[in-house]
Amino acid sequence: MPEKDGKPGIRNVYALGFVSLFTDVSTEMINGYLPVFLVQELGATRALLGLIEGIGELANYFFRLVSGYISDRLGRRKALVFAGYSLSAVSKPLFAFAHSPWDALVVKALDRTGKGIRTSPRDALISQSIDEESSGKAFGLHRTIDQSGAMIGPLLATLLLPLIGPRNLFLVSFIPAVIALAILLAFVVDVKTESREARILKGARQVLGNKRLLLVLAAFAVMGLGYYDFSFLLVRSREVGVAADLVPLVYLAINLFHTAVGYPSGVLSDRVGKEKVLVGSLVFFALASIALARTENLAGFAVAVVLYGVFFGSYETVSRAILPRFAPPELRGTVYGVFYIATGLATLAGMTVVGYLWDTAGRAVAFTYSATLSLIAALLFAYSTRIS
């Protein structure tokens, strides 16, 4: 039932959370082992691993811009959300048939395109289901439910890998993805807004007229230029002595801390300011990077895993929750799309550069570079609070 103001309310957030939960079970069954599969079985270098992940994220973020605009223009969100989840569901099992890094790149791009199609309309739908004052709480709740699936997935991978092998694991990932689609169809309520006839660039220009938003986007872009994702930690885990079948447990640990801080960081951001929480998250990323640059043993690596998990949980939650203040509801999908394309371009460059530096200049140089850019981004977020 909708709330009195016509918003579906927190029930929609819960429903979308469980859609994400089962999708994450599917995704993280694969992600918990895929980087090792790419490097050790398909022969990818670290630079190529970064390029594959970066191109996947660029496809993801490009289609977030497109789908955000389309959902604004249509005044509807749910159909695009369903289309995106469907594409990801049918794409992931195709990793079972990859025989080169380039095969994997194509499948990764398809999967992340599906994620891109669904994400901006889904985030806009969450933001329109509740009041803006509670956006941090809502996105934190969604992130926490979502990440519960990100813990179940690696655990299933750890149990299934010795029994069925990685290629069959990729095929089995289709089952929870189908469950997610059923929940979406049955329980998620669409929110209608006034449809728009404006061009996509006009909408983007309108939201980019805000100077504070421009500085916030610049901070996100700088962070993207030094960013590396969990795949680099999983590859590093093999180097410090983690057995191949246990690598998904490393991913489980990252997601455990990610989940633990998601909701609290969202609530905290509503109380003390979202920029302050983002600054704190980037400090955790810098510390994780320093630990990865210096550590040579499992104990130091474990510290890096904890720090990275805390960073990721708070950063992912609050980076999405900060955006509703910069656009009215009818442009909400567009502002998320602009955010995602800016960060996607930066992430493509960052992931490739970090991987290249690791291959050519060594691990210490690569992760020191990441730590430096994250601290510069933190300073930009802090400064953005001074601009009206």
Rank of each mutant, 00 (worst) to 15 (best):
K276D: 07
L74K: 13
P154C: 03
A286D: 03
K4W: 12
V310H: 11
I254R: 09
I183Y: 14
G75A: 13
G68K: 05
K108N: 06
P264H: 14
A204T: 08
G136T: 11
I117Q: 13
V39T: 12
S370T: 08
I126Q: 11
A204Y: 07
Q128G: 11
A104N: 02
A98S: 10
N60R: 05
A382C: 14
V191M: 13
W102T: 03
L21K: 13
E316M: 14
V338M: 11
G280L: 03
L278W: 03
F220C: 06
R320E: 09
T385C: 10
A304Y: 12
L16S: 09
L38N: 00
L160W: 10
R76C: 07
L217S: 02
L42V: 02
I290P: 06
S289Y: 01
I52Y: 02
V36K: 06
A244M: 11
R167Y: 06
G153F: 06
P154K: 00
L65R: 06
T343R: 12
Y14F: 15
T193N: 12
L249V: 04
A361M: 09
G32C: 03
V247N: 07
A302D: 05
E53H: 07
A243E: 00
P176T: 10
G75K: 15
G309C: 13
R64I: 08
S384M: 07
L163H: 08
Y340N: 07
T113K: 15
L161G: 01
G84W: 15
I126M: 12
F187E: 09
D270F: 15
K4G: 10
F174Q: 02
Q147F: 13
T23P: 01
V318K: 13
L278G: 01
T347D: 09
Q206C: 04
V178A: 02
K211G: 06
L87H: 14
L214E: 10
V106F: 07
F174I: 05
D123K: 12
L217A: 13
A104S: 03
L252N: 03
F232G: 04
A286K: 05
G280W: 01
F232W: 07
L49S: 05
L181Y: 08
A44F: 07
A182I: 15
G209N: 06
D111M: 07
